[in-house]
Write a protein that binds this DNA or RNA. Sequence first.
DNA 1: ATCACAATCCAACGATTGTTAGATTGATTA
DNA 2: TAATCAATCTAACAATCGTTGGATTGTGAT
Lengths: 218, 218
Amino acid sequence: MVKDARKIKDLLYEQVARIGKVFSSPKRLELIELLCQGEMTVETLAREASISMKLASAHLRELRGAHLVETERRGKNIFYRLVDKEVADLWVRTHTLAENRLIELQMELQKIAAQPNDLVPNDRETLMKMARRGEVVVLDVRPTEEYLETHLPFARSIPIDELRQRLAELPKDRPIVAYCRGPYCLMAIDAVELLRKEGFKSAHLRDGVAEWEVARIR
Amino acid sequence: MVKDARKIKDLLYEQVARIGKVFSSPKRLELIELLCQGEMTVETLAREASISMKLASAHLRELRGAHLVETERRGKNIFYRLVDKEVADLWVRTHTLAENRLIELQMELQKIAAQPNDLVPNDRETLMKMARRGEVVVLDVRPTEEYLETHLPFARSIPIDELRQRLAELPKDRPIVAYCRGPYCLMAIDAVELLRKEGFKSAHLRDGVAEWEVARIR
DNA sequence: ATCACAATCCAACGATTGTTAGATTGATTA
DNA sequence: TAATCAATCTAACAATCGTTGGATTGTGAT
């Protein structure tokens, strides 16, 4: 018989709970989502998550303690990145479960994405087929660095800040499908609003690269 | 432009963090793993997790608050069950990530499963093929109710408590592969130890039904 | 060297959680 | 109707966590 079964079990579950703890803080989740876009400095992470660098540093410490992120110093900056795609995967699955189970979250999401979406198919395969044929323009409105790290197939990059000045690059006859970091990132929604106001046909894609990656393998 | 972007985002991540919080307590994780085996009363859950009924009730309250479990009263008892397979899925993926990332957890797991496993293939397909042909006996050592709820294909049920008295039901010429609730449940390990002592060929399968289910869909 | 900058460490505060004890509800049995 | 059992609710304590300010480390520029 296994000796001290209770003590061993407690140790095991405690270890798993270390991962859970990391996912139990809103700000840490936001940092994880940001890191899903690619490596970033503490400064960038803090700015994007609207927190102080100190606080970002403290949260990142937790992430590193659970071995979910790793760091690399380059010059004055320290870059953080996820150690493995598996981490992004767990983030996507966690927020997906949250969306499916928590009515409150569903309502919040509905509020921000109130625009009807009838000009673009919901399923990924046909959307990609259309993108391949050039029937729609897939537009990545994240900062350039994030686009360069990874982006959806056939996507073009115009960061949200530059969009207003670069409208001429986009066609008026075909739908423009904008995406950003994921369902909790509002940049794509702003982009669609701007594009529609300017007379473009435009729709919003709620998923980001991490969500597509999960969908791809399953 | 989306108004109060920061406020909205904070709300969204906070909702997801509610799910994370549930997964941040060792005892709650243990309860989730138990519920992966099927529905159970508070009493059973408390006993199996070695905690008081009061504490179990409090933790289950959290689980219900996050809409991960639902309850049903039948007579004097209240039965808890997972609302959806997706919850079991997230538990499996979380503990898998923990096992891959936390060396401490790997070491703990190695300590308890120190027996070499050379008489049974590691991959699921060939194991199932052998089970189908009757070349191995797959043995479910969980309580009968859990076996009845779901079990691995071709598995036979002998609860660990009855194993010693029912050894005669098992063949000595073929390997007996025992499994239980998952990698953190020690019943299968005890079973293998007993079987080997009694002259059976026996090996331990670390995964339970939830882990197989995840592997099935990939 | 000195300075500025990015980031961390340390200490401390208030807020949130895990856990337990005591009283309470709801359903079954005598 | 009273007694019993399963389970929850309430209140309270200690332990943990999130957050901030102040001091510190390591790097690059002057």
